[in-house]
């Protein structure tokens, strides 16, 4: 163990965790609204990154403008996915919708390859890349700013849910679909809204990650890190997504980085650690740390 590097790994893990929690937020949004676990979130993320790259490469747009345009497209894409793929499945067994999101992930992957090619691309930097040094810790500025942006996105969504009427409508529909309809809410429209927002969140994550590791098909696999995050944070919980994401980031970084023995490192324990931790948490808290407990009065 190399304890000198502990603060360094902790800080890097925390920053990466910020992006994981934003991916987790996308999963939570859709699950909260429609009880669908979206396995295609990672592929929406990858698609967003590729679209942004395409705007910068082929139209010569500034990266921020391309980012904004990709967010606009993401709204349409998310809404369309709900309308075409998931709305016909309302009322069908949950397995059918899960298979649909899996199918969707394959379709999105195929579309991306057909439209943009399966090559690794690089996006112009959103932020300057010089390192910042805080005592013993050296951080990439772009990672730090990506973290800030992710947290900012988080705060915006928390405020949206707490203080706007649309946010209240989404929270209400999340609790009881029939009841929501009885007060005049259109539940399918709310599903569409949830998908549109989740798709925007995915695009933001995609571009932030692409800035760190490049635009490539494997970006979709990063969503796998968000799965343990939402499961032990609690599938319905926005605070759960943030805590879950940060925990996964830190665990991965510490467990993956601290052991010095090359044989041990070759095991890639960092990738496994979040899942092991998730299992232990679910053992004691089946709803996750912050999952909605059913209110039962006796």
């Amino acid at each position: 163990m190399n304890w000198d590097l502990f603060p360094q790994f902790l800080a890097t893990g925390l920053l990466t965790g910020g992006i994981y929690s934003l991916i987790a937020l996308g999963l939570v949004l859709i699950y909260k609204a429609s009880r669908v676990f979206n396995f295609a979130q990672g592929h929406l993320l990858m698609l967003g990154a590729f679209i942004t790259w395409w705007f910068t490469e082929n139209l010569g747009w500034d990266v921020w403008l391309a980012f904004a345009a990709a967010i606009g497209l993401a709204i349409i894409a998310g809404w369309l996915v709900e309308r075409v793929a998931l709305r016909p499945l309302i009322g069908q067994p949950i397995l059918a919708t899960v298979m649909m999101t899996l199918a969707l992930s394959q379709v999105l992957q195929g579309v991306t390859i057909l439209a943009f090619g399966a090559y690794q691309r690089s996006l112009p930097y959103l932020f300057p890349i010089q390192p910042i040094v805080l005592g013993d810790i050296r951080l990439k500025l772009n990672l730090a700013l990506a973290f800030v942006l992710a947290m900012l996105g988080f705060i915006i969504f928390v405020l949206f849910f707490r203080f706007t009427r649309a946010g209240l409508a989404m929270r209400a529909a999340a609790e009881d679909h029939q009841l929501a309809q009885s007060v005049g809410l259109s539940v399918p429209r709310i599903f569409g809204m949830a998908w549109a927002i989740a798709s925007v969140v995915a695009t933001v994550c995609g571009v932030l990650l692409a800035n760190i590791s490049g635009v490539e098909l494997t970006l979709s696999l990063i969503a796998l890190k968000a799965f343990p995050a939402v499961l032990f944070g609690g599938l319905e919980s926005i605070p759960g997504a943030i805590v879950g994401g940060l925990t996964v980031g830190i665990l991965e970084s510490l467990v993956g980085g601290l052991p010095q023995d090359p044989a041990l490192r070759a095991l890639h324990l960092g990738d496994i650690a979040p899942y092991v931790f998730m299992l232990i948490v679910l053992w004691f808290r089946p709803d996750g740390l912050f999952g909605l407990k059913r209110i039962e009065r006796i």
């Binding site: 209400a172 009841l179 909605l292 209110i295």
Partner: peptide
């Protein structure tokens, strides 16, 4: 008004 006092319990 649905039967059984259906409310948005977490709100």
């Amino acid at each position: 008004v649905l039967e059984g006092r259906r409310l948005f319990a977490h709100l």
